[in-house]
Design a protein around this nucleic acid. Structure first.
Lengths: 189, 189
DNA sequence: GTAAAACATCGACTTTTGTCATCGTTTAAG
DNA sequence: CTTAAACGATGACAAAAGTCGATGTTTTAC
């Protein structure tokens, strides 16, 4: 399982990383149950998670306490509430395992230590932040102007596995569509 | 005019910045006309701009060639297409001065030099990136679940000056609302 | 294994949003 | 200054999205 993390890191930072084992061993292995809560808004986000297996949902509540999902993170990707993790401020988002997961978590202090002692490691934070930012910008620029039907088509084109894997309720909340509307439109495809 | 930039930087990095004048003098002063184009998607974004006066629009085109505005940047803020600026890849967004502007621009190479020679300066990039990311996350989390009317109320609460200052067309494209709908809803408030 | 809860779908209906044409006003260019 | 173009508001209508209740299915917890 930990090889998934190892492979991910070497593919980003190269094989010549002196302290690879030191880096790897800094991560804590976490197995979660389905629907386990990893972060509640208001708490400080303590970890950056690497998803080796399973799927995480990053979400907030709207004024009617419905969930709005900002991101769905699957295997071989990083997940966190970066702004809280980086600053120590209260998180504005929630994170939940929507499947049983195998995660590798690194806390803030270890992350700092890694940044200071492993030269290449400070690229990691920048890479994660930039990837997260790119993802958000993309979501705003595409979704704002798309109809519900076009968002579904978008999902089927760019993240097709999610359709079978996750509940309609979750996908609808990710696409910003009412679940009944999602159900109807899906039937029309 | 350049004091606006100077004040902004000292307020972020403190007065004890040794090379403040060196940093300041690295920026190029640019005056723009109304509707002047600063970046076309497909080009590499060459600069990070500090807006000393005026207002910039960051936008893309949807499939019907309507503009969708991701961000509106006013005085005392930074604006760029950071992903293109940082990587040199083609920009996915456009930037335009919607008012006559006074800008201070720093190009990629100078930015690099500053990062290497002025220790505190590398915080700047991280700060700009984090602020941009926070802004995008916030937009997704709030806007996705709000009705057109609630988005307008949001704007009036959090960015009230924009309502008087900018055209209805621009604001509507920022809120992701059709301009006719915006006009009608505004009348009902 | 069974009961309760959560989920998915659907029809009927309401509300919201988008489209189009019109018209008076404001703005910009020569 | 003047004329064209862009803008903003609005009515009539169309399309899209949301709500609600009913029903059958799947999942979960004990």
């Amino acid at each position: 399982m930990i090889d998934i993390l190892r492979n991910h890191i070497t593919s980003r930072l190269g094989n010549d990383l002196d302290n690879l084992d030191k880096v790897i061993s800094t991560f804590k292995h976490i197995s979660t149950k389905r629907n386990e809560q990893l972060l509640q808004q208001g708490e400080t986000c303590k970890y950056v998670y690497f998803v080796a297996k399973g799927c995480l949902q990053v979400y907030v509540y709207d004024q009617d306490f419905n969930e709005t999902t900002r991101d769905i993170v699957i295997e071989d990707n990083w997940c966190s509430e970066l702004l809280s993790f980086g600053s120590g401020n209260p998180a504005t988002e929630n994170i939940r395992a929507v499947e049983p997961c195998e995660l590798f978590a690194i806390d803030r202090q270890s992350f700092q230590t890694m940044m200071e002692t492993v030269p290449q490691f400070d690229k990691v934070y920048k890479q994660i932040l930039e990837a997260s930012y790119a993802n958000s910008v993309y979501r705003i620029n595409t979704f704002v102007s798309l109809t519900a039907l076009d968002r579904i088509k978008w999902l089927m084109e760019y993240r097709p596995t999610l359709m079978n894997r996750l509940s309609s309720k979750l996908i609808a909340s990710y696409l910003g569509i009412n679940k009944d509307v999602f159900s109807r439109l899906k039937a029309k495809l």
